[in-house]
Amino acid sequence: MRRRYFFPPLALPFLLLLVLLLPILFFLFAGTITLAFQRLGLPLPVAYTLFWAALIGSFINLPITEVTSYGPIVKVKEVSFFGITYPIPYVDWGEQKTVIAVNVGGALVPLSIVTYEVLRLILIQDYSLLAKALVATLIASVIIHSFARPVRGLGIAVPTLIPPLVAIALALIIGDNKPLVAYMSGTMGVLIGADLMNMDKIKQLGAPMASIGGAGTFDGIFLAGILAVLLV
């Protein structure tokens, strides 16, 4: 039998255009993040290194502990009828284990940047800016925690735009429009308010792994800081 396949006439040109645009979009994305790092006072080689560390590290989760809980688990049993096997799902009560991990790109990279900036402020004795950044981080943590919700089977969810908007507002109100205040309150606000302050709810999630900064480069921790720095 002869088969005919029909394709929209513009499908191939659009596919070629997409292939050509992907490298351009990647370089724009890389340039945007590098620019944000430079606004924090980081040298260009360091900014490039951090970008690649965040990108590659987004695929790396480092397990730190494991928690055990008991709850309903969906299992499947097989039933044979007239020689045909049917999978039958059912709910049973059993032990659930959740691995708590830290994502390199989504958590450790932002944390290393914040640590560097804090030490730099201490060395240059700019305690005023450091105090403003710490106060903004505390306020951001409380606000973001109020929006954070545990989603069973997924993790702790926060509306995407809340962290950067909170960080921008705090940078304008408290931090004299300083990028460091925006970045620190944006990243640490999510890390503390959404993740660390909800550690007691990990057992309720029913997920095999709960990764802090788990979505890596596109996680709220990482993007909150980048967007806040670019917009202040």
Rank of each mutant, 00 (worst) to 15 (best):
F218K: 12
A157K: 07
F222W: 11
L154F: 14
L119Y: 03
V151C: 02
S112R: 02
I139V: 15
Y116F: 14
V118A: 06
I88S: 00
V166Q: 04
T85K: 08
R149S: 09
I84S: 00
P179W: 12
S146M: 08
T217H: 03
A210W: 06
P164Q: 15
A133M: 03
L129M: 13
Y183T: 01
S185T: 06
G155E: 07
I122Y: 10
G153S: 12
L172R: 09
A169I: 07
G83R: 00
G214A: 00
I173D: 00
A133I: 08
R152T: 09
L108I: 14
Y90K: 07
I202Q: 03
M188I: 10
K132R: 15
Q96W: 05
A215K: 08
W93L: 01
A131F: 13
F82I: 01
A148V: 10
S211H: 05
G155H: 11
I143R: 05
L161I: 15
M188A: 14
D195N: 08
V151K: 08
A148H: 04
L134V: 15
L134D: 04
D176M: 10
D195E: 15
T98N: 05
V99C: 01
G216D: 12
L172E: 02
A167C: 08
S128N: 06
M209K: 14
I84V: 13
P89A: 15
G189K: 10
Q125A: 14
T98R: 08
A133V: 11
N198I: 09
K201I: 02
I122N: 05
I124F: 02
Q96S: 06
S141V: 08
D126H: 13
L205N: 10
K178H: 10
Y116Q: 03
E117L: 15
L180P: 03
I173E: 01
D126P: 10
L119S: 02
L172P: 01
L138W: 14
V151H: 04
Q204C: 00
F218W: 13
F222R: 05
L223G: 02
L130E: 04
